[in-house]
Amino acid sequence: MTDNSETTYLLAIETSGIASGVYVSRNKELLGQVTLYQKNIHSRRLSLSVQQLLQHLDLSLKDLQAIILSAGPGSFTGLRIGYSLAKGLAHASNLRILEIPTLDVWAYQVGQTGLPILSYIDAHREEIFFSCYEREQDRLKQTSDYRIIPLLNLPQMITGKTLISGGNLQMFREKFRNVLGNHAIFPQVCSRQAEGWALLALGYEKFKAGDFSQIENCEPLYLRSFKGVM
């Protein structure tokens, strides 16, 4: 149901955390979304969410130009479910894949304030996956790698007021306060997840730049090696 050849329909999948999310955009505009917050539901519901969302929007996979994946880090199993489904969809429909690091999404969704941003994802064992960003004109510029760090070591990285964005902030707020004191600034509204609209916006930019992934061998950004073997 494409309106004209300039229209870009994108499907985004977010499974890095508690949310099982599927989103569709037309150009920069969010057309629809299905987001479920139940444990262990990704495998059963994700493909159904894709099917039903497309049906509701009167779209088919053939109308899409690419699939955007929230690439992690995060839940290894959740990420693999998203990747595996996307690989099957893309393989059979000749769709391209765009990978967006989930830490970029967390940063983007709070990126209007002008403060430096630290986005994080719980890595358990008192560690976080994180990345740092600064505003440069109308864009966010990444100022660190994607890394894993013990929370206690954060003061080495953060030396001024920084906006913190990430999952489960209710629990993490106190931890950040403890290690960063009043350098830690929190957004007024806490998201439960890396937001679909932000994932789609970053995916659209990447689509315009033609920065596609290889569907054959792309894999989640695990960031944590396993027993030293990757």
Partner: peptide
């Protein structure tokens, strides 16, 4: 399983 679901849907 999820890869095959993707194929089945597509």
């Amino acid at each position: 399983l999820n890869y095959v679901k993707g194929l089945a849907l597509a």
